[in-house]
Structures are given as C-alpha cells and as structure tokens.
C-alpha cells in the first residue's frame, strides 16, 4: 500500500511543480477551510494576534490616549531593577507554581485513582463531590466567612472552642497567613478538567495489561501503578499537566477575592494581579504588556519542559 502510494506521489511530483500541487490541494480542501474560518478568525483575533501585539507593545510607552512611544528594553529594566512589588509578585507566583501546581496535579491523580476503585454509582457520586468546587461559580468567597477575622469566623470559632487560641486571628489581614490561605483555597478549587481526564484515562486502561503484568512478575499495586497504569495514561497525564501548570501560574481571582486587592503588604500579590493593576487601573499598557510577556514566557517554558519530562514516565 505505502510503496505504491509514494510511487504515485513521486510521479505526480514530476509532472507538476510543488506550488501547483499545493494550490490544487488547497482547492480540493476548500470546504475544510470554510468550516474552520469562523473559529480560526476569532482565534487569531483574540488569542494569537494579542500575543504578538503584547510583545510589541511591551517595548513602548503607551497609555491609550497618546500614540505609543518606542522605549526599547526600558519596561523590562524597570520591572526587574526598580519595581520591588513585581519581585514580590514574581516570588509568590513561583511559590504557587512550585507548591499548588505539583500538589494539585498529584491530588488530581491520587483522587482519580482512588475513586476508580469504587463501584460505578459511588464513583459518580465521588466525582461530583470532588469536581463540584471547580465549577460552582465563584463560590470560593465562602472561605471568607470561614476565615473571617472576628470570632464569628468558623476557623476562629472552632479554634477558640478547642482552647487552642484565646483571641481571634486576623487570618486575611496578617501577611503571615494570607498566602497560605490563598494556596489552600486554590487547591480546593483545582480538581477540574485534569481530574476528569484522569478518571476517564484510568477507566480506559486495557484490562489485559494487568493480567499480562501479573504473569510478568508485578507483585503489588505500586508496581502496577508505575509499570502499567502511569505509562498507559501518559497522554492524559500530559494533558492534565498543561491544565494544572497554566492554572497555577494564573492565580488572580482567588487572591483578589480572599486576600483583597492589593493584599496586605502584597503578601498574596501575583504576576497576574500586578498585570491587572497596571493594565486596568493605571492604564500603563506598555508596562503591563511587559508583565504579560514575562508571564507568557514563564508559562510556556514550564509547560514545554514538563512535557519533555512526562514523555519519560515509565520508560
């Protein structure tokens, strides 16, 4: 089959130039392009083009009123050399990426793995319970009530009743606690798309693989997990990693809702909240674009490196 096909292609290549063939190919697939046109024109307008604009604008001074003025690397120099708040934001964002990122990823997998052990009805119920926080709108504000600074807050009420503390702790006004609480809420919200992908991936693993494994000397569940389960669902693991990494780098709504904006001593300030500060409050679009460009580079690098690493799972 293959040989005759490639022969055929070779013959055709001799007859017509590559350009003509390309044109013919495009014409033949006209309907494909027409079907894709609406989606991709919007996709380019709202996703691809903005990335390019953002990179270009990051080298200018632009306030939406005057025309942009080219300033070279000045915005970047200011970010890293003069803007102390940005450095705090950068530190916090890396903390989120290093702590909530991997933790949420592992949580997605571990819970999916355990849930998969139950019968279908219980499984459906548990999936609903664990997935619900991530889709229930911005309901995370109820953590505000739980961590409320007066004695009506549940956390304070509970700890005072147990006699661990004697006066209410100002959870959300104390830089000591704020970042940890935002991380905690972020983790609570993070069993989303990746979690569902893992559940689906686990259900689709070929049963005969486990039987073959048992014959080949797999002794316990941990070996089952490492040699059979993880490699079988590598595609889902890679997909889940992209979702969780992107999520952990873009913490903003939760931080702003829980810790306030700006938070106490910028304790829960992230790169995205810094971006929102300059982009939609101060309207320093050039500077904000520089922040966006750095965010873009951070997310892409981390994602591409992780993809590389995950390809090695179970090898």
């Amino acid at each position: 089959m293959d040989i005759s096909k490639s022969d055929h292609v070779k013959q055709r290549k001799e007859k017509q130039s590559i350009l003509q063939q390309f044109k013919r190919n495009v014409r033949m697939h006209k309907h494909s392009y027409i079907l894709m046109a609406p989606y991709f024109s919007l996709f380019f307008l709202f996703t691809v083009l903005p990335v390019i604009i953002s990179i270009v604008v990051s080298f200018t001074y632009f306030n939406m009123l005057e025309l942009p003025r080219w300033v070279g690397w000045q915005n970047y120099a200011r970010l890293f050399l003069e803007d102390d708040v940005f450095l705090i934001a950068l530190k916090n964002t890396f903390l989120f990426a290093a702590i909530t990122g991997p933790l949420s990823y592992i949580a997605c997998f571990v819970f999916a793995w355990i849930i998969n052990e139950f019968s279908p009805k219980i499984r459906a119920f548990l999936t609903l319970i664990f997935f619900a926080p991530s889709i229930s709108g911005n309901i995370f504000f109820i953590w505000l009530i739980i961590f409320s600074g007066d004695s009506y807050g549940y956390a304070n009420g509970f700890l005072m009743k147990l006699g661990i503390i004697y006066e209410p702790i100002q959870w959300l006004q104390d830089p000591q606690y704020v970042l940890a609480i935002v991380m905690f809420v972020q983790l609570w919200l993070s069993l989303g798309t990746a979690f569902l992908a893992f559940i689906a991936g686990l259900q689709n693993i070929d049963v005969t693989l486990y039987e073959a494994g048992a014959i080949d000397g797999v002794k316990n569940r941990w070996q089952d997990l490492w040699y059979i389960t993880l490699p079988s669902m590598r595609p889902q693991l890679m997909f889940g990693a992209v979702i969780q990494i992107t999520m952990s780098f873009s913490v903003a709504d939760v931080s702003m809702a829980i810790a306030g904006f700006p938070s106490v001593q910028y304790a829960a300030h992230t790169v995205v909240t810094h971006l929102i500060d300059y982009g939609s409050i101060r309207f320093e679009m050039g500077y904000a674009s520089a922040i966006a460009t750095i965010l873009f580079l951070m997310m892409m690098t981390t994602n591409l490196i992780t993809q590389r690493l995950l390809r090695k799972v179970g090898e």
Partner: peptide, 28 residues
C-alpha cells in the same frame, strides 16, 4: 490538508498560557 498540523499545533500551544496574557490587547 495543507496547514492542518500547524493550526492544531498553535491551538495546543495556546493551551499553555492563560487568557490573562492576552487581556490588554483584547481590551484595545
């Protein structure tokens, strides 16, 4: 068809950053 892999590749890459990156140009 010509371009199909490139187009899908771009979509996969765009999963790797959040909409915050594009917020400012989108506002413009």
């Amino acid at each position: 068809f010509p371009g199909s892999n490139v187009l899908f590749g771009i979509v996969v890459l765009s999963l790797m950053f959040s909409p915050h990156v594009t917020a400012i140009p989108n506002y413009m």
